[in-house]
């Protein structure tokens, strides 16, 4: 069986896989990182989004063997070792940007890539368009957009503290 060696959340990892093993299966079943979810069979829902070499990808639509030598970051790799949340995670909590939470790992990973690629800042409409590859069945997206709009201010250094959601 082919062996794949890569970096996951900053640490070296390797596993014996089949050629047909998907990246998401490598993460969930071999490396036991079950924060990355699978929500569909058609590459449409985005629950499985992770970063590979800095770009957000659908890990259900990439082979594990294609990730030889790659740097992969999953939802588990965002918080600091002391548990301090990434500003995007903090914003999702503060703005109640989730209900069941199934789509959340993918939403957060897509949102971080979206914000990083747009240092000029995004309007609410641009945030909605940027999330085309992520489906949520619960929230109606409204609070997700608010969370991302707030998180981008922290990520771009415009404010030190995350703006609080109104009571």
């Amino acid at each position: 069986m082919p062996k794949v060696s890569l970096t996951v959340n900053g640490k070296p990892a390797s596993a014996e896989v089949e050629n047909r093993t998907l990246l998401v299966e490598l993460l969930r079943e071999h490396l036991r990182l079950t924060g990355t979810h699978v929500g569909c069979d058609t590459s449409q829902c985005g629950a499985c989004v992770v970063h590979v070499n800095g770009a957000s990808v659908k890990s259900c639509t990439m082979l594990a063997v294609q990730c030889e030598g790659a740097e992969v970051v999953t939802i588990e790799g965002l918080a600091a070792p002391d548990g301090t949340l990434h500003p995007m995670q903090e914003a999702f909590r503060e703005y109640h940007a989730l209900q069941c939470g199934f789509c959340t790992p993918g939403m957060v990973m897509s949102a971080i890539d979206l914000v990083q690629r747009n240092p000029q800042g995004l309007s609410d409409r641009e945030i909605r368009e940027g999330l085309e590859g992520n489906l949520c069945r619960c929230t109606g997206y409204h609070n997700i957009v608010r969370a991302i709009a707030a998180a981008q201010q922290v990520m771009h250094g415009k404010v030190k503290e995350l703006p609080r959601a109104a009571e």
Partner: peptide
């Protein structure tokens, strides 16, 4: 085309 993740690949 598609969405950001589709366009990245």
């Amino acid at each position: 085309i598609g969405d950001a993740q589709v366009r990245n690949r």
